[in-house]
């Protein structure tokens, strides 16, 4: 009985991991960009966090599609006439995953165990 419950949750975990794949792939790409390309032209963003950090956060919270949309909106906001300032990505209301220190998204259960 209990074994079946564990199996079911493991199955759900596996499904979640697949669901999380696109956003983790996007996060990995952004990490690569931030370590290789971003330092090449230094600190230019008029906002905090910078556009790439915003994109990482947005994608981790909302997934690859909505997150990319948010990031694109942010990049279009970031131009020399913008006031700049602190501008965080919106948080998802019922965010059921957890985020590792590097920025990858894992299922909440993964974190506990």
């Amino acid at each position: 009985m209990t074994g079946a419950v564990v199996d079911a949750s493991e199955g759900a975990d596996a499904m979640h991991s697949i669901l999380l794949l696109p956003r983790n792939a996007a996060v990995a790409a952004l990490i690569a960009y931030r370590t290789v390309i971003s330092p090449l032209y230094g600190d230019v963003c008029r906002y905090y966090p910078s556009c790439s950090a915003y994109a990482m956060h947005a994608i981790a919270q909302h997934g690859a599609v909505i997150g990319s949309g948010l990031a694109l909106r942010r990049i279009s906001r970031c131009h020399p006439w913008a006031a700049g300032g602190v501008d965080d990505a919106p948080l998802k209301k019922n965010f059921k995953y957890s985020v590792t220190p590097r920025g990858f998204v894992v299922t909440a259960r993964h974190r506990k165990g």
Partner: peptide, 9 residues
Amino acid sequence: NPLGSCLPL
């Protein structure tokens, strides 16, 4: 804001 944003690039 002294930063020029990435637009010129």
